[in-house]
Write a protein that binds this DNA or RNA. Structure first.
Length: 301
DNA sequence: AGCGGTCAAGTTGAT
DNA sequence: ATCAACTTGACCGCT
């Protein structure tokens, strides 16, 4: 049984997450700053609830939460603790209510920290800041019952082996709130499934198989072989990623995402599975793309 | 109300 | 050297 997942935002449905910028906040007096951040945090908790309700009502089984759900949370100058915000208890309650709702209706939630989170960097400062950001997302994950914080392996720096050794060492030091949720995903520039699977298998880190990235950056392993090994890294329902190329596989930039999913891009190896599986749909048309793909899967029986 | 410029951050590969 | 791409345009501030 495949559970389709929606990534972060909506296309047609009028559910929007709010954001702000450090530049704007720095111009505000401290009190006004915290009021503003509290307002956004509360609005985003409400938007998350609305997102989960939409998912329940539309047969969407998973929702990826934007890394900016609490904007500029770990910024060096305007970062903050939730407890600094007016009404923080109510905000936290609102997030916890999302967690209960997700549990009750079996809507899985996850995080995908952005590209600035690099655990394999040779710069200690960058690794520290990345870890702090992961800790913030883990805190929210705790409230909302998200079981996945998925990252890429980061830069190669001309020496993938060395970078992976650094990555492994950093992962060993992570607190349990991050470590128990951390997953690794292959990318379309540097790290293939062949690069990451051994580390995932050795460390017990679930491997998020992005088949689109794998097709952009092949490594000699077949999709069915990667699928099988990836399934083996999960101690819970596996989560994979799917997208289609914007202008076809022969187009100039196959790594760009299409608005929709071409059903032909669904790996046969996933359809054959007898196991439960979450597939995050990375398509620009968002819930509209999921509805279309869902219809196709149903028609298939 | 509409619209243009701006926004914390890293790394890579295309142009 | 610059820029787009990456999970994703939103929002401020001016007219």
């Amino acid at each position: 049984m495949i559970r389709l997942g929606l990534c972060c935002i909506f296309n047609e449905e009028p559910i929007r997450f709010r954001r702000t910028t450090a530049a704007y906040l720095k111009r505000q007096a401290p009190a006004a700053r915290l009021d503003r951040l509290a307002e956004i945090a509360a609005a985003n908790a409400a938007a998350l609830k609305a997102s989960l309700v939409y998912c329940r009502d539309n047969g969407i089984g998973a929702f990826r939460i934007n890394s900016q759900i609490l904007p500029v949370k770990t910024h060096p100058e305007v970062g903050y603790s939730l407890s600094d915000l007016p009404g923080s208890a109510r905000i936290i309650d609102a997030f916890k209510s999302c967690g209960r709702f997700g549990r009750r209706h079996d809507i899985r939630t996850s995080f995908h920290p952005d590209q600035f989170i690099v655990l394999s960097s040779p710069q200690k400062d960058l690794v520290d800041r990345s870890t702090a950001d992961l800790a913030y997302q883990a805190e929210v994950a705790e409230w909302v019952n998200a079981d996945v914080i998925n990252i890429h392996a980061g830069g190669a720096y001309g020496d993938k082996t060395g970078a992976l050794i650094r990555l492994e060492a950093v992962i060993e030091t992570l607190p349990a709130s991050i470590r128990t949720r951390l997953t690794l995903e292959n990318d379309d520039r540097s790290y293939t499934p062949r690069d990451l699977l051994p580390l995932c298998e050795r460390m017990g880190i679930p491997f998020v198989y992005d088949v689109h990235h794998h097709r952009c950056l092949p490594d000699g392993l077949t999709e069915s072989a990667v699928t099988r090994r990836a399934m083996g890294t999960w101690n819970r329902e596996p989560l994979f990623h799917l997208s289609s190329p914007a202008e076809g596989w022969a187009g100039p930039k196959p790594n760009r995402h299409h608005d929709f999913i071409d059903p032909a891009d669904l790996p046969a190896a996933w359809l054959d599975l007898d196991l439960d599986l979450t597939v995050d749909v990375e398509a620009k048309a968002k819930e509209t793309a999921i509805a279309r793909l869902r219809q196709h899967l149903r028609a298939q029986g």
